[in-house]
Nucleic acid binder design. Sequence first.
DNA 1: ACCTGAACACCGTTCAAGT
DNA 2: ACCTGAACACCGTTCAAGT
Lengths: 232, 232
Amino acid sequence: MAARGRRTQRRNQVLSREQIIDTAIELLDTGGEGALTVRALTERLATGSGAIYHHVGNRDELLDTVTETVVTAALATKPTRAPATPEDEIRVVALALFDAIAAHQWLATRLILQIIRNPVGPVTVGIFERIGRQVGALGVPRASWFDATSALVHYILGAVSQNAHIDGDTSGVDADTDREEFFGAAAAAWQELDPEAYPFMHAIIGQMSEHDDREQFLTGIAIVLDGLTHLR
Amino acid sequence: MAARGRRTQRRNQVLSREQIIDTAIELLDTGGEGALTVRALTERLATGSGAIYHHVGNRDELLDTVTETVVTAALATKPTRAPATPEDEIRVVALALFDAIAAHQWLATRLILQIIRNPVGPVTVGIFERIGRQVGALGVPRASWFDATSALVHYILGAVSQNAHIDGDTSGVDADTDREEFFGAAAAAWQELDPEAYPFMHAIIGQMSEHDDREQFLTGIAIVLDGLTHLR
DNA sequence: ACCTGAACACCGTTCAAGT
DNA sequence: ACCTGAACACCGTTCAAGT
């Protein structure tokens, strides 16, 4: 937002960091990580590669910035109804991440990568702080705050990543391989498994084809929250 | 193992799939994903690129195969003492994955990527089946098996991924940036945060620098297991 | 300060040719 | 069947040169 004021100050700046970030997101959403090339950026933005490097320094840095932008935006959107309980607020944050990854399939891997590489970065810290506050309000004793928050965050990120479905590189085929088809194929593949070697898989095929990702995600959160109450 | 018999049959096969996989793991462990190039492989194995493509078809396929190999091996190692309870067995599986990722930092992202892209692959199915059986033994009602197992697996994979620490590309600096230094830096970074904006982060700095990853991981599992009992 | 675009080093992958 | 290695198309990144 500070940059917006600057733009007019600096008269006619042709290319801006925000523009690069925005087109990068477009490219990523359309064709996955493989589609974000410096050349594709220069083409869309009608510039030279040097111009891009002048603004973002690095492809990897750009990817991190983009991830940060998307996650921050997701966490910032206010829910329609103000959350009434700490549990509600945790669900709001969790679902925001869930939806962000559903909207941007490339985000799952990038988010994890960023958290691994930069555990003190704004993304990690932002999520932790947001969830952590509720853990206190939940009645978890102070000595267990870190453990409790870690458990929640780890679950959320794990679940959310697994739910990214569909190829990260959407280059190959139709992007309309939609969820029904997807789960149908999965159920069919499970059916193929040797029932002697995989009795459990066979036992849950029915639940698999009926289940709803979002609901299952919320059930998982409920399970973890429930476990947290015993830390009291 | 079937291939070993074939090796003698086919007389003097110079290059084998296993060899390629093994050197790939070496390269990955040493220098991260960036170090696994076809050229590096041809050099170490003293062949041409065509030879490698004759055996593995694809860099990406190789990466998947390697991931599968490492995960399968990790899941196959028998614990010193046979697990007595379903909870024990779950911990055994979870810690096996934990240790595998600690030993191969590149594994975290690759594992997630594989699970996203191929949710019916042997890796995903293997982990699910292994954990799922215990969930039944735990007394979770059949109708909740899928939800319960998902919660556990998602937590495990989330937690385990976050604990990969240190750069995926170990190219840049010394790989000996060891954990003490790492957590020291993290704690210091948290200290820098604005206490007004990040009260929770400040509240847990102490726990952060004292905590043990492995123990925290087990605590998390205990929390989820505890939550599962309420599904009865 | 901001941008251009040629040049460089390095990729994954293919393929005609060899054994 | 298995391997060689040159060739191709495509990367990210740099940098002298322009405005």
